[in-house]
């Protein structure tokens, strides 16, 4: 719950300071696209995420878990996550945290959809590996 509350607070800070939805796929994807005035804060936000990872690696390495699938499966998974989140306008943070909180119907549809396909995939992949 504490971790979840921190995620909620950080997302609220993005809304209060920058007036934007804290969707990680949108922030990361936006950095890849043409240079816009938003690029600076998006890069800074990603820098904060990177800093959290570096601190975790030093202070609590057990919090970063080992992969559950082969490298080939991981590469396919990353490709699907990147393409899918840009096609569907969001991921767990943008649709899940921010969208559900705002009562967005689009986000509710997205969350139900990715939880369903995610569960089906995890069940199949878990039996095969």
């Amino acid at each position: 719950m504490l971790g979840g509350a921190l995620i909620g607070m950080a997302s609220a800070l993005v809304l209060l300071a920058h007036g934007r939805i804290a969707g990680i796929s949108g922030i990361a994807g936006g950095v890849l696209q043409r240079a816009t005035p938003d690029r600076a804060w998006r890069l800074a936000f990603l820098g904060g995420l990177v800093a959290a990872g570096v601190v975790a690696a030093i202070a609590a390495p057990a919090t970063i878990g080992p992969p559950v699938r082969s490298i080939g499966a991981v590469l396919v998974a990353g490709l699907l996550v990147g393409f899918g989140t840009r096609l569907g306008d969001g991921c767990t943070s943008g649709h899940g945290v921010c969208g559900l909180s705002r009562g967005s119907g689009r986000s509710l549809v997205a969350v139900v959809t990715f939880l369903t396909t995610g569960a089906i995939t995890a069940m199949i992949a878990g039996r095969l590996s």
Binding site: A77, L79, A110, T117
Partner: peptide, 8 residues
Amino acid sequence: GAAIFGVG
């Protein structure tokens, strides 16, 4: 998009 993301 959400379905593809979920699979990944």
